[in-house]
Nucleic acid binder design. Structure first.
Lengths: 216, 216
DNA sequence: ACCTGAACACCGTTCAAGT
DNA sequence: ACCTGAACACCGTTCAAGT
């Protein structure tokens, strides 16, 4: 009578799901070991049997959130695939507005982070970059998406400070502030920066293939 | 005899300097209200007279760290100025390896953050981007530098996880892992992504001026 | 009116005591 | 051998009590 309803046998997946749910409902501060344990109806120390440190648990939460970022269409061109996978990552994170900022910068160590990373790598390799540049470019893309997401969420939340920055920047750039200015963290803003990076990669790839044609 | 040595009259600047020093010596966790107060020899609550919340104090620490990022040479071309100001921001942050990650993502609300932001804005405006795109591009650049710094520092510190990611990426990209692969968070890695962004901006600017020449 | 410090409501993690 | 929960060493911030 007491071994079925509350005791879900406590797997890492069950713990991560509970943490994600708590984070969605009550923000990042709710994802504490004690709160998660209380939500699961177990002792806080029971979690340490599955995650030696809290950081590892948060990595698992991040990966869970990335689960519904789909792989890009394998028949599309490499630059479109790159665009699509990064847009999918942003969309998946934005579905959890309360905690995406705390998720975005975690290293993609687990299943879905690796899957999406592999899609990026494959697209960059197809672009014609040499392996070392594939690594460099992928790290730049990961850095960009992580920080853009952090801004997205912090601006969308209680944090007024990024809005203040937006005002400052708008006034400096010489147009009417707040008028038709891009909103910090908006999808449009995200896509602009992503386009800059992809354009840069296209240029790099073109330089490479030109060089390869010219030198031999 | 007791009013001169310890009691530095407690200004925001004195508090931020103490916090930065503590962070450099003992890492981000040492920048707690209690530790800073102990270091200054005052009651923790005395800090709240100058900073209503800890977040504001950390913003001030970040700005202090940016103080020795110099403005770019005003006679240089816009793209070189852009490169130089972002490189200077990275160099300033890297001088505080223990805490740069916690500094990098703070909104540039204060003196030096605004000064460096203004230099970026001016360079982008000179590139020929319309005001809305100046805002978009500057936010993309800020996002990139922030995340790249966070990775730089986390990889340089105790955090082995980013190195693990680097291994995964290297092995996926099809070359020998750890051999001559770019190191995550290295200056070279940073400059590669920055070059991608600047190339993208150059392309955007060229598209703009071409359009302006063609349409009238 | 200003300042102090005790107190509140939390943390992550260790470790000795139980089963 | 495994699991529990008390305990340790902290947090940011509030607020009543002192001057």
């Amino acid at each position: 009578m007491d071994g079925m309803s509350q005791r879900k046998s406590l797997t890492p997946a069950v713990i991560a799901a509970a943490a994600l749910r708590l984070g969605d409902r009550e923000g990042p501060a709710a994802m504490s070991m004690r709160r998660i344990a209380a939500d699961l109806g177990c002792d806080p120390m029971a979690l340490y049997r599955h995650f030696p440190h809290r950081e590892g648990l948060l990595d698992a939460v991040a990966d869970l959130a990335l689960a519904d970022a789909a792989d890009p269409d394998p028949n599309a061109a490499w630059d479109l695939r790159l665009h699509d996978v990064l847009t999918a990552i942003r969309a998946a994170a934005v579905r959890h507005p309360g905690i995406a900022a705390h998720i975005a910068m975690r290293p993609p160590l687990h299943q879905h982070g690796r899957r999406l990373g592999a899609a990026m790598i494959a697209a960059l390799a197809e672009a014609g970059l040499p392996p070392a540049d594939v690594v460099r470019a992928s790290q730049a893309l990961v850095a960009y998406v992580a920080a853009a997401l952090a801004m997205t969420v912090q601006a969308g939340q209680k944090d007024e400070r990024w809005h203040a920055v937006s005002q400052i920047v708008s006034s400096m750039s010489g147009s009417l502030p707040g008028d038709e200015m891009p909103v910090v963290g908006s999808r449009e803003q995200f896509e602009y920066g992503l386009r800059l990076l992809i354009t840069g990669i296209q240029g790099e790839a073109a330089r490479r293939t030109e060089g390869a044609e010219a030198s031999p």
